[in-house]
Design a protein around this nucleic acid. Structure first.
Lengths: 242, 242
DNA sequence: CGACCTATTGATACGTATCAACCCGAGTGG
DNA sequence: CCACTCGGGTTGATACGTATCAATAGGTCG
């Protein structure tokens, strides 16, 4: 059950950083106890594959910390990142046999795992859990569709700017507008992963970052740290709408 | 409650063509009765907007017949179709205030509608309904992510071929492989809508269809009717994988 | 028959991919 | 301690695919 470099441990839900945003958000008292009883933590290193597409899935999990990607590929190697898993995001499909996409850790990742079958049982028994599950699935669906607009219709510049906005919004204090004044973000992904998320090549991502810098929209501090002096300017470059 | 060219009526669920594939698929006896009590049918003409993005949503619905699109746009008019609604598909978001995307009838469309609040109540009370709702949401999520691969990584030729395969799979007898031998499909969408679904222009869609015809992969019978002599050839042109 | 809308076909422009060289920082081993 | 290597990132020159602009064709309705 233990893969080489994955470790297992467990902490009290009370201190969990995603307690009120994850799948368990609506659970209280006894409900959270029952989840607590069947959970276990597990950590992964950058680059490690957490789950393989097509494999039988035995667990579902919440991301506690770190970033992972959902990835699909064509036979010739072309690859598309179809989703990011950030802290509080849920991974796995109750009611499904197999895993739909490769899940790969982009940074150090800690998951709060549940065996699938006990979890499915709780899903049936705890309405709060079921409601939250549906809500999160619909949120993911919205996110996927917003990304379809980006992939199908936005220019490279807009794509890169949109991506930076997404990271800024979700990595700063959750729900801080970040639009106001200066903010600094740390990219959790390599250029390659960013390119695969945006439907671009590494080179194009790199070039667009340079152009955004020359235009004064962002500032670069090494390859992974980005300063946003004026959120509004970035939003404009992203093609606006949200 | 009645918009100019929408009509209302109601039939028995027993004769419903989507009875065993729609949101109600798992409901039996009393459960289907309770759904039946709160449903009403409603029809729309091609081009009619069924719901507007941002509007407050008062109803949710199953598509009984016809095809509708889910659409988003950027301010400058660039448009992306982010989903197709085919018979048995569900539209609307329990638990959400507003509508996420424009819904537009592509053909004559008949919906089986439910007032949102009574439906949400049934969702809480009928586990079969809740399960099916989650299952369908996850199916849609899979479909959206498969489309992200198409939008981000496939060539125009592959996009068009993939689209034809999608229509062939869902319009023939549902779940017929269609890969075997010759089949004939009727496109329910104009070139413009197809283009907006594939992240292409009308012209490119048209050209790729012509090329596929010249390559003998398909045959055209007017603008909307397409013959597929060999499903395998089309699947190959689509970039394979499923 | 003419008007109109949708679709096709053609010529050209432009944006991004591709191929290639180079840069930089981090390990690694002599 | 420094040269070497290696992976990730940037920059440059060019190719290619799709968008754009424009003209033409076909089908439908009054």
């Amino acid at each position: 059950m233990n893969s080489p470099s994955a470790t297992q441990f467990k902490i009290d839900c009370t201190y969990c950083p995603v307690r009120h945003r994850a799948i368990c958000a609506r659970c209280e008292g006894d409900e959270i106890e029952r989840l607590n009883d069947i959970k276990h933590y597990r950590s992964y290193e950058p680059g490690q594959t957490i789950a393989f597409q097509g494999e039988k899935s035995e667990i579902v999990a919440s991301v506690v910390s770190g970033v992972a990607t959902l990835t699909t590929s064509l036979e010739d190697g072309r690859t598309q990142v179809v989703g990011l898993l950030l802290p509080s995001d849920f991974m796995g499909r109750p009611g499904r046999e197999t895993i739909a996409h490769d899940v790969v850790a982009a940074t150090d990742v800690t998951l709060c795992c549940f065996q699938k079958h006990p979890f499915e049982k709780l899903l049936e028994e705890i309405p709060h859990l079921n409601q939250r599950m549906l809500e999160m699935a619909l949120d993911e669906l919205d996110a996927a569709r917003e990304w379809m607009l980006l992939l199908g219709r936005k220019s490279a510049r807009e794509k890169v700017a949109s991506f930076l906005l997404l990271i800024a919004r979700r990595s700063g204090n959750p729900e801080a507008k970040s639009l106001g004044s200066e903010s600094k973000i740390e990219l959790p992904l390599s250029r390659e992963v960013v390119a695969n998320y945006l439907g671009l090549t590494i080179e194009t991502v790199s070039r667009q970052l340079t152009i955004l810098r020359k235009d004064g929209v962002i500032d670069l501090e090494g390859a992974r740290t980005i300063l946003i002096p004026e959120g509004a300017a970035l939003a404009e470059a992203a093609g606006a709408i949200d």
